[in-house]
Design a protein around this nucleic acid. Structure first.
Lengths: 171, 171
DNA sequence: TCAGACATGTAATAAGTTACATGATTAG
DNA sequence: CTAATCATGTAACTTATTACATGTCTGA
């Protein structure tokens, strides 16, 4: 991310919460130690800007060595793409749940997707023009997958509810 | 998984590599310690079956207490669904890559998706009938999302390649 | 006046991955 | 004869999450 310009840990966190949110999570507990470690290795440099009332702002910038390192990292021919879904794990056992409980879970998932869609629209309206094609591709990917998930859930939720109904009727 | 019947760690691993592969990864290093810990807590019981030439087969079975624990765990109203994609992270920087390198990455992703699709078809043909609706929903979810990813990549890969071409032309 | 943005970090814990360690049987 | 399947586990290491710790400024 620093390859696209200087930033503080706080700035990066905001990116993780917006444009990167659909495929990569990171909290302060990962970001700050990572920046320190990168600085130690000489892959980024750090400029401290004194401030009143809050900790000094530390603005990080990628170095020439950092750029070389990034380029080498981009040579990985088969980067992974992993999903870890407690949601899907839970839905495997929908027949053990109360129908209202299944509804709640489904709706909360749909809400998450809705939030992503709003975020995508926001990003598209604001900062998309200044982005390279790669970022557009990645944003579009998120939109396409979100839309597919939403459509699938809406069209197939009956599969889950039928069974819990049967369950609660026999119980 | 033990709720659907007895199994050994080895058996569970096979499930993680087939029907669960698209939303939950686990290796032996996670499975065996987890089974031991569950047994210690009394949530599963273990029956050791002696064998020659290989370690005793340990068949685990869920206990009544384990079932109660599962039911309580299924009350979580907002289970998470996380994606961690080195693939998408890499594609953000496609403009820094060689066009052939981008092609390689894209094709390897497409191969992965193809493998998933074959696996889904296999599962559907074999064991699907005996499954509860939840498992069918989850399998269908995987199929829908895989299809959406494949379609998106095929229709939008030009976004990535245009830029690297420009890059290599100007270089 | 109260929430939220700004701004950094550490420490403890939890979780996950990888390598190591062993070895028979079976199908191609 | 070779690769895969069966079958278990531990130890070391890497990674990520959560809670803690602090405090100002701004807008509603």
């Amino acid at each position: 991310m620093l390859n696209d310009g200087k930033a503080s840990g706080y700035d990066l966190k905001k990116q993780f919460e917006s444009s990167f949110a659909h495929f990569f999570a990171a909290g302060f507990g990962s970001i700050y130690p990572a920046l320190s470690s990168l600085a130690e290795q000489g892959l980024v440099s750090c400029q401290e800007i004194p401030q009143q009332g809050k900790p000094d702002r530390k603005v990080y910038e990628i170095t020439a060595e950092g750029r070389r390192y990034l380029l080498k990292a981009l040579e990985n021919p088969a980067p992974c793409h992993k999903v870890r879904s407690e949601f899907l794990a839970m839905m495997c056992f929908a027949h053990l749940m109360q129908p209202e409980s299944v509804e709640t879970v489904l709706n909360s998932r749909l809400d998450d997707i809705e939030r992503f869609k709003k975020m995508f629209a926001d990003i598209e309206a604001n900062c998309m023009h200044e982005w390279p094609g790669g970022m557009k591709f990645v944003l579009g990917f998120g939109k396409a997958v979100s839309a597919a998930m939403e459509k699938y859930i809406c069209e197939n939720r009956y599969l889950l509810l039928e069974e819990t109904q049967k369950q609660s009727a026999s119980a």
